[in-house]
Design a protein around this nucleic acid. Structure first.
Lengths: 194, 194
DNA sequence: TGTCCCAGACCGACCAGTCTGTTTTTCACG
DNA sequence: CGTGAAAAACAGACTGGTCGGTCTGGGACA
């Protein structure tokens, strides 16, 4: 771990830049400033700006998966667990990572880079975690029988959709929380056994 | 209308470019090529690339609102109407307009431009249309009593989320349709009166 | 002749990536 | 433990190319 500390330092600085001005909106010089390093240093650790993005995305996804896993794999009720995840989601709502992924996806011209991105996203365990969560809830009789694979995608879509709506509208947070709560409420009403 | 035919010609060409390579990914010269006009011509009709985007977005949103309105304001059942909208949504799924809006949002540096974008998105009647649809369904006793405003946002979030998931994953369409169907199924199960 | 509409060469800014040189670290060996 | 040289890590000026936007000129039409 410690051997890549500088690499992570750069990646963290880059993430901060990307989060505030997007992938295309941040120049390598911006990352230089934010990281306190020089261009030479950065390009010694990474061979391109795209590689920085892919590296930090992987890192971010690993973290993200860990927190989701921690929330959904406990032994509370399905409702409690997902509600807890929603709270975490609301706390980190100001990090429009998904939007930046879409941006990167659109901007990446090199097909090889896109392939790497797809591979990274497909390797994500996020969907599997959601699926396991749903399967368990069904087995315990909390959820009605469902296509767990598709249901996982539905859940992810809801979260992503909410996050992006927030990102664009930037309305007051109270309203947004109300929407998120209702979304979960509807979801539970739609999947819980009666 | 006819007096802006050239303007619309440019906007249509630009839209095609944006849809395939994103806002940042398409240069003005790309629009020049696609429209068959020259740079001078384009900059006679528009004062900037951003203005082209805002113009075509407005146009696109108007169209979009019309089709949503047409689908949701009929006098069928709430389930029928929303299912019909889903079908239309599936047909036009390959137009990642939302993703491009996010991209534009991230890239626009000028605060004035962002303000215009926000104004445009806030003026959208899309949310109002969904809200009216929900209110009617509640009044007719099809949906249980709900916060219609928030529920409209939930619906929009679901559609947006689904679209963006598709945009990134690009899995086979059958799987995607299954997910979309389940999403609506859960939604209906969550809001219909029993 | 003046106005509208357009063509396309041109410009300055920016930006990812390179190159050359310098500092710091590592480590073999006396 | 000292030391010196090789390798690693970094600094920052520089470059080639791209891109949004301008400018000058010209054709069409009134």
């Amino acid at each position: 771990m410690e051997k890549d500390s500088k690499k992570d330092l750069i990646a963290d600085a880059a993430l901060a830049c990307f989060l505030s001005t997007g992938y295309g909106g941040t120049s390598v010089d911006d990352i230089v400033k934010a990281s306190g390093m020089s261009k030479g240093g950065i390009y010694w650790h990474f061979k391109s700006k795209e590689e920085i993005f892919l590296y930090l995305l992987k890192k971010w996804m690993n973290e993200s998966e860990r927190t989701i896993q921690a929330q959904l794999s406990g032994n509370g009720s399905a409702v409690e667990k997902l509600s807890g995840l929603k709270e975490q989601f609301l706390e980190r709502i100001n990090e429009p990572v998904s939007a930046i992924i879409y941006e990167f996806n659109l901007q990446a011209k090199d097909e090889a880079v896109l392939k790497k991105l797809r591979a990274l996203l497909n390797d994500s365990k996020r969907k599997a975690i959601f699926k396991d969560y749903i399967l368990l809830a069904i087995r315990k009789g909390e959820f009605r029988p469902l296509d767990a694979e598709a249901a996982a995608d539905v859940l992810i879509s809801i979260f992503e959709g909410l996050g992006l709506q927030w990102f664009i509208q930037k309305k007051d947070k109270k309203t947004f929380e109300r929407t998120a709560n209702l979304a979960l409420d509807i979801f539970f009403n739609g999947v819980l056994t009666k």
